[in-house]
Design a protein around this nucleic acid. Sequence first.
RNA 1: CGGGGAGUAGCGCAGUUGGUUAGCGCGCAGCGUUCGGGACGCUGAGGUCGGAGGUUCGAGUCCUCUCUCCCCGACCA
Length: 569
Amino acid sequence: MRFSRLLGKTLKEAPADADCASHRLLVRAGMIQQVATGVYSYLPLGWRSLKKIEDIIRSEMDNAGSQELMMPSLQPIELWEKSGRMASFDKTLFIVTDRKEHKLALGPTHEEVITDLVRRSVQSYRDLPQLLYQIQNKFRDEPRSRGGLLRVREFIMKDLYSFDVDEAGLDVSYEKMIQAYKNVYARCGLPAVMVEADSGAIGGKASHEFMLIAESGEDQIIYCAKCGYAANSEKATSVKTSETEVKPLAIEEVSTPKMTTIEEVANFLSIKAEQTLKSVFYVADGEIIFVVIRGDLDVNEIKLKNLLKCNDLHMATEAETKEAGLVAGYASAISLKGHRIVGDDSIKLGGNFVAGANKPDAHLKNVNYPRDFKVDTIADIAVARAGDQCPKCDGKLESQQGIEVGHIFKLGTFLSDRLGAYYLDKDGESKPIIMGCYGIGVGRLLAAAVEQSHDDKGIIWPLPIAPFEVCLCPLKVDDPPVMQAAEKLYAELTSGGIEVLLDDRPESPGVKFNDADLIGIPLRIVISARTLKTSSVELKWRREKQAEILPLEGLVDAVRKLVKSGDNG
RNA sequence: CGGGGAGUAGCGCAGUUGGUUAGCGCGCAGCGUUCGGGACGCUGAGGUCGGAGGUUCGAGUCCUCUCUCCCCGACCA
């Protein structure tokens, strides 16, 4: 490819309000362009990288024994009504209406369609197992897009679905996918880590995410360096401990004027936060839920939502709190009537807690569970934090931000049951097919790669997903010997199977170097009158500071070796 | 949806208490000089000031409505 013909200009300035490195750099490098909120075009350079990632994914999915197919974006709304997932997707579904006033959803994912497809194509255990995938655009009307390609409303996803006769089969499929995913990230040159995850709106049992560590990531990973435990903070657990063993004392009321936060109360009474009980009010699908948790801990809303099995969960607003007759800042579960109470299991640890007195400006001392109050449900609904004890060993948990670049789920049978995907087993008995699903956000992976590999000059692509492998820069295009040598080398490299971007623009050296750095092509070859004097060129890795001088003689082979080795420093 | 901010040339921005023909940098086109880390000179093209309505002799500037975009939260690949 000749740079002079390439569509998409490099920009000196990025949109002022673009904060993420990947957003700024992908726009500046002329790889993507925004069309609407969370909607982007890929320009030729960006599309080349994207296709490389797709190809890697394809080959790994194929290797794992999967078949590629293609399903439509338009999905009859009836399938969603049947699966019962309308409510959990809710407003994120883009719904279009056809000329007959019939409603169709733009696919946010394809479990419904593929389960229906498999229902018609699979009748016998002999047809199973199956691994099926596609790479296709998905549509989700996200409440908020962000960070360029990191979170968008139309995105390219590889979605694979597994169909098995039993749990053991699902385990095999799941393991195959874990290995395939690891291969994908490794081949892209990206060190993704696998963590335990919540299954969210997709539903199902076990679930894992693949994360790329990055400051700009939206997810927090909680991990233990000692035993390798790692989980999304939505899912992570930790061992809750209590420093004090206490003998229950009699309840006592204390005046706490104008103290509504745990911190204020604890300071005022000279106690630790873990000696208090915190009350938090939520609204779950319209019902007020009263939550009790030890004062030093926070409620993990995902855990709470899963526990309550509700579609919508939010902190009660002031109005909702008031309407429920609750006194914010001074509420407690003691003699509370009319509301469902959920307790975190931390309330069992320690005792003689300070809790609200259910009236303004007063708290109660020496509150003990279950002596003084009962709860309807008790479970772990607390946020696990760095510094907590690992749930698997005696190590300490740590945390890091990450970008979710893959998510896999063991779905089980709830979709095949609802959509009628059954098979006959050896004994002629009809059974629901056991499903799993496995997704990679391809565009997000591209952005994550940039987040994770760039410097102040621009992108530093890992070789396997770079738009070109080599940027060939003749420094003076109107100097015939230089340009002739460049053209010759360009032809030789290209026919040698190397992807070369020839910077044939009549620009100054500075412009060419800066653009090559910005676009992030792994290898740069400079030809100038200077190097030609010794029949050589200058070769430099994007990642390295130092360049080296190589003879023109045998250069193609040398470059091919470098590219093959994938060693980009 | 809640909170904050922004829409002026392809991109990044300025535009004072309302006052002629709306500016600057980059980029773009032409000519010339340069050529190893974003060179320079000259010439030139490019704008319904997001949209609609209003106030006014006069609106980029003031008022009302509206659309779009960005950032922070609740969601996800």
